[in-house]
Design a protein around this nucleic acid. Structure first.
Length: 428
RNA sequence: GGGCAGGUUCCAGAGUGGCCAAAUGGGGCGGACUGUAAAUCCGCUGUCUUUCGACUUCACAGGUUCGAAUCCUGUCCUGCCCA
């Protein structure tokens, strides 16, 4: 399958340099995408670049994942309102290693394959370059006028917070990455989100002006939610790929909660389901949206891709027991503690000393001490707002006591904060 | 280096001596409705606190005043213009 036409029907092509498609058809092409080491795990926002690399490799080309050790020290100003805080070197190093470990699970690094994936870190080549040699050998080839004409830069120039020279330099640094990879690894193509287009084109310009070579690129539209809010966040923050940060159950829930409209584009972007199958799923979805056919399939595919089959099954089981109408909490009551814990895999567990039971604490104090709320004030506020349930029953009084009678099966209490946040309290 | 305009709570943005924990909008959270959706409506949104209230905030440091986000002095930072 032709990579570009595959990505095109999925709605994953925004800008594309002329000749890119021809290049891909002509020969096995090496292409790269950069990842920012801003945290020690990738999150769902990074999923699009990952998908691009996977598609690339499946189409027989060679993917490079670049971890931005150097660029991470500078910070991309593209379309951001303000300069971001800098990370220290130790943190960056730690983050790079964690990200590398994650990426290794999605791409095929088997060197026996002609198009095996590779990982590079731009810090490796930047650490040896002096400022003087850089501005002389590289800076010479790009005019400031050219750099300032970029939309990403213009926005900051027009804003009222200014832009430091450090940030302004960013596109040169990233551009040089491309040039470097072109020279050392015969990498002829770069991909990225559409906010990267400006930076990417600076790279192709450097390849052309310094080396006289031809480089290609395309970008993927940024994922937007229908309501315009940022993709990849939930009430509790980022959705991480690291199961220690976001449990597979929570991860599954994130996708299951996709908006009806968004689900139609997500299923194309975040799964590998082929076009006819996607079309029939969408048709089925439109017939009766309340069944959430798309969301369920989407959540299944993505969870399986990231966490594996077994974790998906567990997440599904947890979801069914917590949200299904006919099962619900009543079923949980009949379970042993072991069954309960197994059923509720991925739900936040809070451990509380068993002594707390005999002290007849009121819910507010109890919840604050159990760590479900940061303070009594917040616990009270939410309870008064009617947003807190215990074992499936709404808590109506702030002075309700927690005693042994509150126990679900003699051992635990299941709390529900808001509509979708569950906490299992275990007494130890 | 000179001139001008600014720095307010998550964001935008009012407030220019007491009625200010600070309008309004956005965002976030919660509730009702529903399909664990969207739209709509309602509530909460500095921290702690059962109520009263206490404490910390309007760039930073001092000062004037019974009382300052608001006035004065200095410092730092930003934008625009000039050099």
């Amino acid at each position: 399958m032709n990579l570009i036409s595959e990505l095109r029907w999925r709605g994953m092509i925004q800008d594309i340099k002329p000749g890119t498609e021809e290049q891909l058809q002509k020969e096995m092409t090496t292409a790269y995408i950069g990842f920012d080491p801003t945290a020690d795990s990738l999150h769902v926002g990074n999923l699009v670049p990952i998908m691009l690399l996977v598609h690339l490799q499946r189409a027989g080309h060679k993917p490079l994942a670049l971890v931005g050790g150097a660029t991470g020290m500078v910070g991309d100003p593209s379309f951001k309102a303000e300069e971001r805080k800098m990370l220290d070197e130790a943190t960056l190093l730690h983050n790079q290693q964690s990200i590398k470990a994650q990426l290794e699970r999605f791409l095929d690094f088997d060197q026996a394959k002609p198009n095996y994936a590779e990982m590079v870190n731009n810090y490796d080549w930047f650490k040896g370059i002096s400022f003087l040699s850089f501005i002389r050998d590289v800076g010479k080839h790009i005019t400031v006028n050219y750099m300032m004409a970029k939309d990403s830069v213009k926005k900051r120039l027009e804003g009222d917070s200014g832009m430091s020279f450090t940030e302004f330099s960013y596109q040169m640094i990233q551009g040089y990455d491309f040039y470097h990879l072109y020279n050392t690894m015969n990498c002829k193509m770069q991909m990225g989100g559409s906010d990267q287009w400006g930076n990417i084109v600076t790279g192709t310009e450097l390849v052309r002006r310094i080396g006289g070579g031809e480089a290609y690129a395309f970008t993927c539209p940024l994922i937007k939610k229908k309501d315009g809010t940022k993709f990849g966040k939930s009430e509790s923050g980022n959705i991480w790929l690291d199961p220690a940060k976001t449990t597979p159950y929570q991860f599954y829930q994130f996708w299951l909660n996709a908006d009806d409209e968004d689900a139609e584009s997500y299923i194309r972007i975040f799964t590998f389901i082929d076009e006819p199958a996607v079309n029939s799923l969408i048709a089925e979805h439109r017939q009766d949206q309340s069944k959430r056919v798309l969301q369920k399939r989407l959540a299944q595919e993505v969870t399986t891709f990231i966490h594996g089959e077994a974790e998906y099954e567990a997440a599904l089981k947890t979801t069914e027991s917590l949200f299904s109408k006919n099962a619900g909490v009543d079923v949980l009551k009949t379970m042993s503690e072991e069954q309960l814990l197994q059923t509720l895999t991925g739900v936040d567990v809070k451990e509380v000393p068993a002594a707390a039971l005999t002290e007849q604490k009121d819910v507010v104090t109890f919840l604050a001490e159990a760590g479900i709320f940061p303070s009594k004030g917040e616990a009270r506020k939410l309870i008064q707002g009617g947003g807190m349930s215990m074992n499936g029953q709404k808590i109506t009084a702030v002075d309700q006591k927690i005693t042994e009678e509150s126990l679900l099966n003699g051992k635990n209490i299941l709390f529900q904060k808001g509509k979708k946040n569950y906490y299992l309290v275990r007494f130890i």
